[in-house]
Design a protein around this nucleic acid. Structure first.
Lengths: 266, 266
DNA sequence: CAAAAATTGTGTGATAACGCACATACAAAT
DNA sequence: ATTTGTATGTGCGTTATCACACAATTTTTG
């Protein structure tokens, strides 16, 4: 079962929805549909027409591209800080990338038509959606840089921090195999990097459960890519008012699915 | 001196400007300022506030990120097909990346305030700008994938084709050193890859002048990343009406500047 | 025309990541 | 409690790319 019962959910757990002025929020509220987002669920397949826009609250979604020979690479990650489906209001109705739930939880969704209508009014939702898209662009750009210049270990730190930022507690539920698929590297490479991080005392892990032990040290160890994106998000996006005070609590284990089939690497 | 005399320039050489309906175009026309864009010119520094949006006509601009230790990586490339400065209408007024002229030529620019005003009207310019941004997102995503999974030789092919697409002729004016900076790899790596492409008869080159000899073969040799982006651009963006018929003519040599200082690689 | 600078070519050894083949360890299921 | 499956650990040879050093050209400059 998925963590958190539905009645503990609230659209304002999503930072974008929380930042909407009351009038707009109330207009959208009846259209917001709560959806459980289980691990491995493909919100949208590569090239498929988007039917909804998703505002994750407790779930985390990966945007990734799968190559012809089955290798994959994460392009960006979205959680409570943003929305999935920017192509809808940007003019395409699909993208070459796939959206997959990377960490199970809940989210709210709007029908494509409803979102487009509200976006075209040119009000707060438009401004928020565009600002978030700009933050997403920064994340994608930095992913490209990171893939070019930084080690698997640095990229693992980045992934862990990005995920940790979007979860209430310190426990990440993800196997090394899944991490390898997201980073687009070998599983063994993740094993070695994670082993070093554990030996250094930054994290501890066991069979799909990673606990962040020393976040400040992780932040020192990660490459600049993480910090560049973080800073840009803070600059562009509405701050989650309880983000700082929020106590990190242990997360609840959820059921596991296959993420993506193991990449066949050239 | 830069190729093409100013009076051979026309804003409609830029595909986005060309796609604007007459009414909008005429409204913007008096505000469009023709600017020569010499090789190496930094349109906008990382983190600096954007003062203008640029619509290249014959020039090509690289968006690239420079790391703390001086290494660089191209994020995306824009020419007559698009515009430089999406952050302006997306809500940020700056980006962590730098915009540098990669191939000298001309372009038109609009003051930030003028563009923002027109964008807020929600008309054709907004729709075009957003569609182009979606295409840019695709390019950035594919750059991330390419950096992760493909060889320097494949990436060189991609760079050559992207550049060739944005030039009138078959001659690209760029040194291997400059290419290395854009790809974020060693200059020697480019020398070797380019040597193989020349040996195969796809290109020929000499001291900063590369001629595309067999484009169809290059297109077969390049990784899927190029084709994914091309297809998505064709789908999202207004087609340049003379793109197909346009005769490729030899380009004219321009003066050379330093692109970026050689990266110190960790 | 000579000197200086820019561009490209080549060789050598180091390294990070790869593919593959297993071994080990823990968890879930019958 | 034993089996089955999932997750992680490890070793070994291979490869792409790296860093560095320098040679060989061609172009530009004084």
């Amino acid at each position: 079962m998925i963590a958190n019962s539905p009645n503990s959910n609230n659209p304002k757990q999503n930072d974008l929805l929380a930042a909407l002025p009351g009038e707009v929020f109330l207009r959208l509220l009846p259209e917001l549909e709560l959806v459980p987002m289980p691990l491995g669920w493909v919100l949208c397949e590569s090239g498929a027409k988007l039917t909804h826009v998703y505002f994750p609250t407790t779930a985390i979604v990966s945007l990734l591209y799968v190559t012809e020979d089955g290798a994959s690479a994460e392009i960006a990650m979205t959680g409570r800080d943003g929305l999935v489906g920017v192509a809808l209001f940007m003019g395409g109705d699909s993208t070459p990338s796939r959206a997959v739930v990377q960490s199970a939880g809940y989210g709210y969704r709007l029908k494509a038509s409803v979102l487009k209508r509200e976006f075209k009014l040119g009000g707060h939702l438009q401004a928020l959606a565009l600002s978030y898209t700009q933050a997403l662009i920064t994340q994608m750009a930095q992913t490209a840089v990171c893939n070019r210049h930084h080690t698997v270990e640095q990229q693992l730190c980045r992934l862990l921090l990005l995920t940790h930022d979007r979860l209430p507690g310190d426990e990440l539920v993800m196997t090394q195999e899944l991490i390898a698929n997201m980073l687009g590297v070998r599983r063994e490479g993740v094993t070695e990097a994670a082993g070093r991080l554990q030996a250094a005392g930054y994290i501890k892990y066991s069979r799909g459960h990673i606990t962040v032990l020393d976040r400040p040290r992780l932040e020192k160890h990660v490459c600049e890519c993480y910090h560049v994106v973080k800073k840009e998000c803070d600059r562009l996006l509405p701050q989650n008012p309880n983000a700082l005070q929020r106590e990190k609590e242990p997360a609840i284990t959820v059921n596991r699915h296959v993420y993506v089939e193991r990449a066949v690497r050239h």
